[in-house]
Amino acid sequence: MSTGDGMEKKINLTLKVWRQKGPDKKGKIETYRAEDISTDMSFLEMIDVVNEKLVLEGGDPISFDHDCREGICGMCGAVVNGRAHGPSKGTTLCQLHMRHFSDGDTVVIEPFRSRAFKLVKDLVVDRSAFDKIIQAGGYVSVNTGGVPDANAIPIPQEKADLAMDAAQCIGCGACVASCPNASAMLFVSAKVSQLALLPQGRAEAPTRVINMVKEMDNQLFGNCSNERECEAECPKSISIVNIARLNREFIKAGLLSNEK
């Protein structure tokens, strides 16, 4: 397809995949051959090929989460050769293409592991802890209707842009999987920042940050010790500047509550 120099090639790979029937079952690495893989395929299409073969042979296809396959829903994700979402920077697993691999490579594929993400099956994990954190305060408390005209509050473009940078988080969990402490700080800070940067979100900023951080602890995520692995692996390049902003908001909120 490409008119660049990366013409389509076929490659063969050895896959080492984490297989586990369920949360309470024992898991282990199994080996599969992925043959005749076009370098224009996406990583998930490569697994599709392996799975189709497994189904026909009467085996159990590899379970993995995916939906949009264009890097926006946050459903996909696995640790590939030790890196969340694989080797390419700023790329979800579904948008990783096989041209980044070479003929004969061995590829190790494991689930996103964390105390807070219970394993469902194979590469599928339960990330509902993220939803719980949002439920604890990741919103502006407005009901439908009765809101002012959209242009009533001008927002400086620069602020709006920063808010948008943070809002791009897709909730995939790669930050947690790549953090040595399994902290969800990058995820939480992205939402806290988005809303703290906008006038609409200011009113609840103090309670929001306190409640969301508390819920993060409740959900068994670890603490942030500035390892910066999250930022490096985040497919949406969410910046750890957001964590600094969260910390500032947190301190501010603490001061406010002391004043009472």
Partner: peptide, 22 residues
């Protein structure tokens, strides 16, 4: 029109002009 108002109130970061309007 009310949809845009609602979304802005929720904190949806729509694109803005330099003057800060949508």
């Amino acid at each position: 029109n009310t949809i845009i108002d609602q979304c802005v109130a929720q904190g949806v970061p729509f694109a803005r002009e330099y003057g800060g309007l949508l």
